[in-house]
């Protein structure tokens, strides 16, 4: 009788299914609560993976659009965007200074010309996704909490890393440095961080 199948059996099936899906990358509906390191080696691998991708997040190509304030940053020295551009409610700028007024869907050719990608924007005002000034511990906590990551599931977050806007970081246009990892390394490390348990580095880890 079906009704007699112990609850624990369902759990086992669910875990097996989730594990299988994690390899196919399709229909991944794991929640953050479901993601836990299952071994000491995974724990270390996950944490190390995050510390690697953290360097990418802190690179100017990523951090400049995840500023602590409401003004995007520019350049490798993370200076404030000189036109006094503001985030706006939707993260797409304000009034005559909307991102897309200058930023096209691709880089404008030439040194120091406005970079561009599809949907060029900052995180929205109600979910600022600040990278600037965050330690690895803080950033990992922020990223895996749907309340601070824009309601993103692990799958959503992995998908975000596939967007043109994120990939732009590796083809940022003339004169701009690229993040310390290649895109593929970054993507794999990010995925590894999640797959192996989305381990949050301890406070003080660098």
């Amino acid at each position: 009788m079906n009704s007699r199948i112990p609850i624990s059996s369902f759990c086992i099936i669910a875990v097996v299914t989730a594990a299988a899906l994690s390899f196919t990358n399709n229909d991944d509906n794991r929640s953050w609560a479901q993601i836990k390191a299952t071994s000491a080696s995974d724990r270390i691998a996950s944490e190390n993976a995050f510390l690697q991708v953290y360097k990418v997040f802190m690179s100017p190509r990523c951090m400049n659009c995840h500023p602590a304030g409401d003004v995007p940053l520019n350049g490798d020295d993370n200076h404030l965007h000189p036109q006094g551009v503001k985030r706006g409610e939707d993260g797409k700028g304000l009034y005559a200074l909307k991102c897309a007024n200058c930023h096209q869907t691709q880089n404008t050719p030439g040194l120091n010309m406005p970079p561009g990608a599809e949907d060029w924007h900052l995180p929205a005002a109600n979910m600022k996704l600040v990278f600037q000034g965050k330690s690895p511990h803080e950033l990992a906590m922020q990223m895996k909490d749907p309340k601070t990551n824009g309601g993103k599931s692990p799958h959503d977050l992995i998908e975000h890393m596939k967007t043109g806007l994120v990939k732009w970081g590796w083809k940022p246009g003339e004169g701009r440095t690229t993040p310390p990892l290649s895109y593929t390394e970054f993507y794999n490390k990010f995925k590894e961080w999640i797959d192996k348990g989305a381990v949050v580095p301890p406070a003080g880890a660098k």
């Binding site: 036109q83 006094g84 503001k86 304000l94 005559a96 007024n101 200058c102």
Partner: peptide, 9 residues
């Protein structure tokens, strides 16, 4: 608001 709109000119 004026600062936020006009500092690009």
């Amino acid at each position: 608001d004026i600062d936020d709109a006009m500092s690009g000119n």
